[in-house]
Amino acid sequence: MPEYVELVCDEMPLSVVVLDPGPRAVEVTKVLRRLTGLSLWHSKTLISSVPATVLEDLPEDAAATAATALREAGALVEVRRQPMSPAQS
């Protein structure tokens, strides 16, 4: 009789994607700078080229915290699961 095995991943990496900076782009830029450590110029450039993945390879709690901070600043944000690469599987 064949045996079936189901693989369960503990935690898939997540990305935080800014879809729209909203009406308070300056506030969103400041929050992004605080979260990523990027310079103000790089943060502004990233926000002006939306949709933009601003953080990658985060655990679920860190992604949720970052998304909440960006939403509170006025941005439209999405948390996406990253597909696993063949090297990770």
Rank of each mutant, 00 (worst) to 15 (best):
L7I: 13
L7P: 00
V8C: 03
C9E: 11
C9Y: 08
D10C: 04
E11F: 06
E11R: 05
P13S: 00
S15N: 05
V16L: 01
V18G: 00
L19D: 12
D20Q: 02
G22M: 03
P23C: 13
R24A: 12
V26K: 11
E27G: 15
V28N: 07
T29L: 00
T29D: 02
K30H: 13
V31G: 03
L32R: 05
L32N: 03
T36Q: 04
G37N: 05
G37Q: 06
L38C: 07
L40R: 07
L40Y: 12
W41P: 03
W41L: 15
H42A: 12
K44S: 14
T45I: 08
L46Y: 04
S48V: 05
A52F: 09
T53L: 06
V54E: 09
V54S: 08
V54L: 10
L55R: 04
E56L: 12
E56M: 14
D57N: 11
D57L: 05
L58K: 08
L58F: 13
L58C: 07
P59M: 06
P59Q: 12
E60G: 11
D61M: 10
D61S: 13
A62Q: 14
A62L: 09
A62D: 14
A63W: 08
A63Q: 06
A64N: 10
A64D: 07
T65I: 14
T65R: 15
A67I: 09
A67F: 08
A67H: 04
T68A: 12
T68Q: 15
L70W: 06
L70S: 02
E72K: 15
E72F: 08
A75S: 13
V77L: 02
V77G: 00
E78Q: 15
E78F: 08
E78D: 12
R80G: 02
